[in-house]
């Protein structure tokens, strides 16, 4: 199970990001646990200032704005198809 956190104060962009990640991963059969972090101190502890931010397994993969689908898939690449570049 991959741990994914969406960091954001609950604005529209953050909600969209969270939903997008959920949709893209379930479409591609990637199992994740998706969590929303709204606590400002915790958000800041990752050193980011523009929300939404996305953390995958403890690593910052995205900051500020809504990510596009290709980028989302690229975070999970090794888990859905390690060898093939085309499948995601």
């Amino acid at each position: 199970m991959i741990e994914v956190k969406v960091l954001g104060s609950g604005c529209k962009n953050c909600q969209t990001t969270q939903k997008l990640i959920g949709d893209v991963t379930s479409e591609n059969g990637v199992e994740i646990s998706l969590e929303k972090i709204e606590d400002m101190a915790e958000i800041m502890s990752y050193g980011i200032m523009s929300t939404p931010g996305v953390i995958v397994d403890g690593k910052i993969v995205h900051v500020g704005g809504i990510p596009d689908k290709r980028s989302i898939l690229s975070w999970f690449k090794s888990d859905c198809c390690p060898a093939d570049d085309q499948c995601c």
Binding site: M40, A41, M44, S45, Y46, G47, I48, K59, I60, V61, H62, V63, G65, I66, P67, D68, R70, S71, S74
Partner: peptide, 26 residues
């Protein structure tokens, strides 16, 4: 009292192609 963590280096795709995709999404 909030202490910001050290900004980690973002593992981001920095190719021109990825920037183009970002701009298109925008």
């Amino acid at each position: 009292k909030i202490h910001m963590g050290e900004a980690q280096t973002l593992e981001q795709d920095n190719s021109l192609k990825a920037r183009h995709r970002y701009a298109l999404t925008e």
